[in-house]
């Protein structure tokens, strides 16, 4: 099967400016700094990382909500960042996004029917005017909302239901890819499971591919076929769900997995625990060489001078570490 989305060397830097009359650039936040991956039709690529790793910026750039600094993305062979006019509109139908916060991503003055039906205003070819209310009811039904509630406003729904509204809106144009940026992290545990199941069902039903961005490693594992681990703007390790969780080779992936609390009190004090010191460095001035070296227990001189490439050094999947080595964590 061909690649649906092929991302190469994607870079997004944000300039930091000082002064009002004489604005000058004093630095650059290297939010995404050379990211490459591919996505096949119908698969889920999970993207995990801590705050500031660039995972949300990646989503914004992929959706063309922010222009990239450099790099390419091919969608079915077409270069996404140079699309214009009709081709751009056509592509926007194929790629949609679901955002984290169901409270701020829905317009409080619009009814649910208007929110979910708004994509049809922009892409009238998908649903002729007369059929829209019917399509919106269908979509509400698909995401598990009562179609009778089409005239209600967002504040009349709970957090989980609002996230369903956001999913219905994303589904309206029958996209091939949905970028999900932390879609369940604002939800309570019992509601989170409902929304995760819904995303899995929809994928089966509509053959969707997901780029699933989240900081919760258990959530990502549950939904993903392949997983990319990001740290300070770069992918440090990428592989199948099993390769990343069962055979991690990058120290950062190992530390992340080790830090997740396990819901079994009998394992207390019996796990092999890796504790990182300090916080993630600022993406304004990332460390030289390997960006993880300042928190890494394996770091040596070479790590400060040579940036490790994302290569398969050991095992079956790529890892950006000079000293990549499998370690069983969970």
């Amino acid at each position: 099967m061909g690649e649906l989305l092929e991302v190469r060397d994607l870079v997004k830097h944000f300039p930091v400016t000082r002064g009002v009359a004489f604005r000058r650039t004093v630095g650059r936040v290297r939010a995404v700094d050379g990211v490459s991956f591919s996505l096949r039709a119908g698969e889920t690529l999970g993207v995990v990382g801590e705050s500031g790793c660039g995972k949300s910026t990646l989503a914004q750039v992929l959706m063309r909500l922010e222009p990239p600094t450099s790099g390419t993305a091919l969608f079915e062979g077409e270069p996404v960042f140079s699309l214009r006019g009709a081709a751009l509109r056509r592509w926007r139908r194929d790629m949609q996004i679901v955002l984290q916060d169901p409270y701020t991503s829905l317009n409080p003055r619009m009814t649910v029917g208007d929110i979910v039906g708004e994509p049809f205003e922009i892409h009238p070819e998908v649903a002729p005017r007369g059929s829209r209310a019917g399509r919106v009811r269908e979509l509400l039904d698909v995401v598990g909302l009562n179609p009778e509630h089409i005239n209600r406003y967002p504040h009349q729904f709970s957090g989980g239901q609002r996230q369903r509204i956001g999913i219905a809106r994303a589904l309206a144009l029958r996209p091939k890819v949905i970028v999900c940026d932390e879609p369940v992290s604002a939800l309570d545990v019992s509601i989170q499971a409902q929304v995760m199941n819904l995303l899995a069902e929809l994928q089966g039903e509509f053959g969707l591919a997901y780029v699933f961005i989240a900081h919760d490693l258990s959530v990502v594992r549950h939904l993903s076929d392949r997983v990319a681990v990001m740290y300070l703007g770069k992918i440090v390790e990428i592989g199948t769900e099993e390769e990343i969780y069962e055979h991690p080779t990058h120290p950062y992936t190992q530390a992340l997995l080790s830090a997740v609390p396990v819901a079994d009190p009998t394992l207390r004090g019996r796990r092999d625990v890796i504790r990182l010191t300090g916080d993630v460095p600022s993406p304004l001035t990332p460390p030289t060489g390997c960006r993880f070296r300042t928190r890494c227990w394996k770091a040596q001189d070479v790590c400060a001078t040579d940036e490790p490439a994302l290569l398969t050094r050991i095992g079956t999947h790529p890892s950006a570490c000079h000293f990549a080595e499998e370690r069983h964590i969970i």
Partner: peptide, 17 residues
């Protein structure tokens, strides 16, 4: 407890409340 996704296994559908 049953509605939690697990880190150590990729399960089928989650049980929901």
């Amino acid at each position: 407890m049953r509605s939690l996704p697990r880190l150590d296994a990729k399960g089928a559908a989650l049980e929901t409340i």
